[in-house]
Design a protein around this nucleic acid. Structure first.
Lengths: 192, 192, 192, 192
DNA sequence: GATGAATGAGCATTCATTCAT
DNA sequence: CATGAATGAATGCTCATTCAT
């Protein structure tokens, strides 16, 4: 018995459909069919396509967070922390390639949903901690002084860019060698 | 008189509309109205929305391409070349912010158009020369040995990621200081 | 009150429109207007033009079917049966000339709908019984041994061809005399 | 060299396209492409889709005629004539299956073209001779007295119906045995 | 909470035809 | 005779959303 609650069934279905088609191209009806739920029921739980996407975004982001934060802490050296972030990021992406892609797709969609508040709240919760850590290490003279958005771009975007490519045509064997290059580049890019 | 040819009017209109709404959300009718062209005429020149997007992509990429290539050459040192690529890239983006955003939007759209050939052709024309230059510098021992896709990600993606953010809420004043950081990071990431 | 259900209203409207213009030339919008139904509602009940045509075909065929079967039975002699089939056929056509024309139009349309299964099911339901009756009478030596499709063509097509002509420019007065000729020909064509 | 004249190229192309899709569903553009002709040129030769279909109908019918008429004559007995007509008909259909199908498709289309005159002219030329022959044989007491349209339906429609079926999924091996049945039925149907 | 009928605006695309060169 | 750009009405179908039960 133990029926899976409708709300969850819809979220899982939405994950699949939004991932495959993207927010705009995906239709509520595709989600409905995938979830095996009635139209009325779907709209009962998520009154809008945008709200569904937001809920799904938060749902996915929460999981990603935890993985990242484990890599940094006050006791971790700047170099170890930066490289740890990259390693943690890569690990999560390789373990949850679909979730990773989805997160990316939904991220860009933010503009369309007009529900920025919920999004930003989730994002800040996620990267606020990282920002704080960076500030401390910068004051301690271990990191170059950089605006935080620039810092994020320098450290994460190469890994992000590459993993997005992997994720389209999975090529997990490349990981070990490339990981070193990515960690190295991340650290060299922001070392004081 | 000197009437602007229809085809061009449509491409310019498409640039505007696709930029504002993205490929999927933009409608052919919006393009049609913006171009001030009849429906039949629009479809006479571009038989498909996807084909229009492809044509627009190639059209925009060609312009970008020329700017990049000026930065590299056999006589340029690896460091100067890498930094020059970043500088040229940033300059082009700041000068043509709309084109830059458009290029980005259309890039992601490639999956939806199913006309990979035309796309790849344009891409290779653009990045083939860079790839060749990298190969030579690598053999000369000036650059780390890296797969080309990884090389591209390490060098370009931070700049790419940042400019994407600027371009949404224009903030062109940040450039000078940040540029140095980006050039530095790019070079450190791939220096032998 | 006693509102006529939407589905039925659409079928009746489709009968009228398809009859007047034929499947290809008729438009869903014509059907929609004739039925006084919203577009969404129309497509809610019939997700495709082809499916609408199929449903209409089955709907019409069912009625026709019943009329035919009354003419044959194990106790009926071959001659009486064959002639009875013709008589029943003519009677139905004269009583429901529009339905008859419609059935004809839709029949030819089968190729375009790609939903052969539903069609064949309806057809077999209708003609399977006749086929069985023919087989028995043939074994009993009352009918010539002929492949069933050939049998059908010999017996029915003259009546079919003529009624199609009547139905275009109604000329119901011809019936009595001609009917005898048709019954005679049908029987002579397949008598053992 | 010996270039095939445009007009003919268009007719051949139209034969192919109309046969495959039917008059309504076929588009002038399909014909244009198949013929490898420019749009302007196509409309120069045939100012209307309907006129193109008419021309094609006449073009095809002319050929069919000649074959039929060879079967009858004053010296031919009624039975030999009737059976000969069926034989000639079958032969032509089997030899030119595509033309036969086309003739059928176009025939039904007459309603849509609003150019009945040209059509009727062609038809009467074709069947007028047969009608005359039937009249003589009837007066001579060899054939039952029947209205001519009824006579045509009785004699030809079974063959017509069957050949239409063959022509969809060619099954030419059935011919010899079935031909006898068809000739027999035709003769029995109208013999005095 | 759930169901499915209803809504109507919107969309990409097709088509027969016209016209200037 | 030929070319191809231009036209605009139509078409089948999708979609997010609402609502009565």
């Amino acid at each position: 018995m133990e029926a899976i609650p409708t709300r969850e069934r819809v979220l899982e279905a939405a994950a699949k459909v939004f991932l495959e088609h993207g927010f705009t191209a995906a239709s509520m009806d595709q989600v409905r069919q995938e979830a095996g739920v009635s139209n009325g029921s779907l709209y009962h739980h998520f009154p809008t396509k945008a709200r569904l996407a937001d809920a799904l975004y938060a749902y996915t982001l929460r999981d990603f967070h935890a993985s990242l934060l484990a890599a940094i802490g006050p006791r971790v050296s700047a170099e170890a922390g930066v490289k740890g972030l990259i390693r943690a990021y890569l690990q999560w992406v390789l373990q949850h390639p679909d979730r990773a892609r989805l997160l990316h797709k939904l991220r860009r969609t933010g503009d369309l949903t007009d529900t920025a508040s919920e999004r930003n709240q989730a994002n800040e919760a996620a990267f606020g901690t990282v920002g704080e850590w960076v500030r401390q290490k910068t004051e301690a003279g271990e990191l170059r002084a950089l605006p935080f958005p620039v810092w994020l771009a320098l450290v994460f975007s190469p890994a992000l860019s590459l993993t997005q490519q992997w994720v389209r045509k999975p090529e997990p064997s490349v990981a070990p060698k490339v990981r070193a290059a990515l960690e190295h580049a991340a650290w060299m890019s922001v070392a004081a």
